[in-house]
Amino acid sequence: MDRPAPAVPRPAGHGMALALGAGVLAVWLGAMAFVLREAALPPETDGTVLVVFPPGTPDGRAFAAVVEAGGRPLRQTDVGFAWVARSDEPGFVGRLEAAGALGAFGELPIGPQLGGCMAVNADTGGPQTYRLQP
C-alpha cells in the first residue's frame, strides 16, 4: 500500500481544537490582565508616564482626561488608546485613573518572539510591535 487509507477526522476533533484554543486564550487574557494590573504604577506616582485608556476611547476624550488629571499630553503612541503624558504634581496616576484611564505604566514593551526548533532570537534590540515607553 503506497499511501494510507483516507481517514477523515470527525468534527469533534475540530471542536476540541477550537475549545482548547479558546480556553488557552481565555486563561492567557485573564493572566495578562492580572499581571498588567500588577505592573501598573501606584496612584501617587508623578512624572512622565504611559497612560492606557480603554481600547476605542476617542482621541479627544483621552486628551481631555489627561488635562483633567492635571497633566500634559506629550504624544500619542502607535496604539491609539495609549498616550505619553506628564505631570509634576504627586498623585498624577491616581487622578488619571479617576478620569477614566485603565492604568499608567513606566514602560510596556509588547512584541512577538519567534522561535524555530533551535533558534531563539536573543536580540532584545530587535523589532517590537509596539514600543510603548514614556
Binding site: M16, A17, L20, G21, V24, L25, W28, A31, M32, V35, L36, E38, A39, F105, G106, E107, L108, P109, I110, G111, P112, Q113, L114, G115
Partner: peptide, 23 residues
C-alpha cells in the same frame, strides 16, 4: 494540534514574559 499548540505557546508566552518583567 500539538505542533499548533507549541506555535501558539511561543506567541502567548513572549508578551507574558515581558509583562512579568514589567510587573
Amino acid at each position: 494540534i500539538a505542533t499548533a499548540a507549541g506555535s501558539l505557546g511561543q506567541f502567548l508566552f513572549a508578551p507574558m514574559g515581558q509583562a512579568f518583567i514589567a510587573a
